[in-house]
Computed example of a mutant assay.
Amino acid sequence: MSNDLPRHSVSVTGIVIRLEDGKVLVIKRADDGRWVPPGGVMELHETPEECVVREVREETGVEVLPDRLIGVYKNMKLGVVSLALRCHPVGGNIRTSDEASIATWVTPEEAIAAAPEARGVRIADAFSVEGPFVRVHDGTSLLPN
């Protein structure tokens, strides 16, 4: 196999839902100001579940337990495949970080409205009884499959 073939990057997105009130954890990204669920690039030694726990903790201070796979979302422009996992909080204290200028709990409707379509759909999908979903996007908007 050739070493010059294109490679994908794999990331995770944590859709963290508080069980007591159904609110969703979102961050305002420090780099581009977008409102998104926390997440990031998976390291080679990590499982998707380990990665989502680490990324949510690093970005928000919230400790989570993954519940289920919501879907697979591919950014066609960047070649990034993101595995979205529904999670619930089990501890920690919410805080900001180098990656999150704001970390807060909002209603699902507020989160979906504030996020770019490609991220908001992951939140909507987390509340669906269907799935897992496979969706493609350009970084902002969904594309037809």
Rank of each mutant, 00 (worst) to 15 (best):
S2I: 11
S2P: 11
N3W: 08
R7W: 06
R7C: 15
R7M: 15
H8P: 09
S9T: 15
S9G: 14
V10F: 05
G14F: 13
I15Y: 01
R18N: 01
R18Y: 13
E20A: 08
E20P: 00
D21E: 00
G22S: 01
G22T: 10
G22E: 00
G22F: 09
K23P: 02
L25G: 04
L25F: 10
V26D: 00
R29Q: 08
A30I: 12
D31T: 14
D32E: 04
G33C: 04
G33P: 03
R34W: 08
W35G: 02
E43G: 04
L44S: 08
H45S: 06
T47W: 01
P48Y: 02
P48I: 05
P48T: 05
V53C: 09
R57M: 08
R57F: 09
E59R: 13
T60Y: 06
E63F: 03
V64P: 02
P66R: 00
R68F: 05
L69S: 02
G71C: 10
K74S: 09
L78D: 14
G79R: 10
V80Q: 09
V80F: 00
V80Y: 01
S82R: 11
L83F: 05
A84L: 05
L85H: 01
L85P: 08
C87H: 13
N93M: 10
N93I: 14
I94V: 10
I94F: 09
R95D: 08
T96Q: 02
A103E: 00
A103Q: 07
A103H: 12
W105Y: 13
V106D: 02
P108I: 15
E110P: 10
I112Q: 10
I112P: 12
A115D: 07
E117G: 04
E117D: 12
A118M: 05
G120I: 12
V121C: 06
D125Y: 10
D125N: 14
F127L: 12
S128K: 04
V129L: 12
V134Y: 06
R135G: 00
G139S: 05
T140Q: 07
T140W: 15
L142N: 01
L142W: 14
L143Y: 14
L143I: 07
P144Q: 09
N145V: 11
